[in-house]
Design a protein around this nucleic acid. Structure first.
Lengths: 162, 162
DNA sequence: TATTGTTATACTCTATAACTATA
DNA sequence: TATAGTTATAGAGTATAACAATA
């Protein structure tokens, strides 16, 4: 972000700047390492785009699942996202306090909660998603292109089935 | 992993099992979500393969960087891996206690530590990596194939540059 | 007996501030 | 003044155990 230091000064004492690039060694061929770095970069970009909405990836995913499956039981939502049901409680509490989602009585099972978006939650999610497409996914397609993005998605799905 | 429940029993009361699959909704097209699921699956497989070595991904990455860049300063190692220098201290402490890596005086700067693998660390890393190739990367190539794995690596690199 | 939502708890990761010794 | 390593601390994310209500 700042001005690039050219640092051409040839000093007399041994080079104070260590060396050129750091060699990744064995890490270079490991898929997990490259996957992690890419995932961190994408999540960072996601959070930058959602900063004004105060929405983290996990929160967005909960809203998206509820929107697509209104009335789904709490346990099924957390399970679908791979979130421990105990940890899901506080996550949902916050969305409920923000009036984006709500817990309702589930038909036929008084132990369960059926989850729904509030009208505010519906419009909030739609607008957040629109913004996400314009900012975040747009930046991704700028470096990948549409064809390679879909190619990447299919490659990732094969890994998820590991 | 367990036996697949066929559950063909047609009960009289309304279907107790909610529905078929959960719809991912907006999540389906989001690259970040798919990336995260794939990364989690790959890290899980990595940890399974490294269970007997008691080596987590971050620990492996530190050993790999030091092996490829012996004598590199502590701050440069943590920086190369994107690990906060404050958090790197305990990580390195453990590797040093296990006699896999060591801190040495850096030539020309008494503030810095130069990092090296111990002979034990060298052979430990080599063996862990050999096992990783045989178990972990082998399973990955089984679902991806060599060509698609390299294709995936190049796609991921473009994202990391976001 | 088993399941749903919940609380409590602990352990890992990550992020920031501040100290020390050096530069 | 600035940097390298360190400590302390706080916040997320994640995992397990146990409880009450209900099935």
């Amino acid at each position: 972000m700042a001005v690039k230091k050219t640092k051409p000064a040839a000093s007399t004492e041994a080079a104070p700047e260590p060396a050129g690039r750091v060699d990744l060694g064995l890490l270079d061929g490991l898929l997990g390492y490259r996957l992690r770095r890419a995932q961190l970069a994408v999540f960072q970009d996601f959070m930058t785009a959602m900063k004004d909405y105060d929405l983290r990836p996990a929160q967005f995913s909960v809203l998206a699942i509820i929107e697509a499956n209104p009335g789904l039981k709490q346990s099924r939502v957390s399970e679908a996202l791979g979130i421990n049901r105990a940890n899901f409680v506080a996550l949902l509490d916050e969305l409920e306090q923000r009036k984006l989602a709500r817990r309702a009585a589930a038909a036929g099972d008084r132990r369960s909660n059926a989850l729904y978006l509030t009208p505010k939650g519906e419009s909030f999610l739609k607008e957040a998603y629109r913004h996400l497409l314009q900012q975040h996914e747009r930046r991704i397609e700028a470096v990948l292109g549409s064809a390679d993005k879909h190619l990447l998605l299919s490659l990732l799905d094969r890994l998820t089935a590991l």
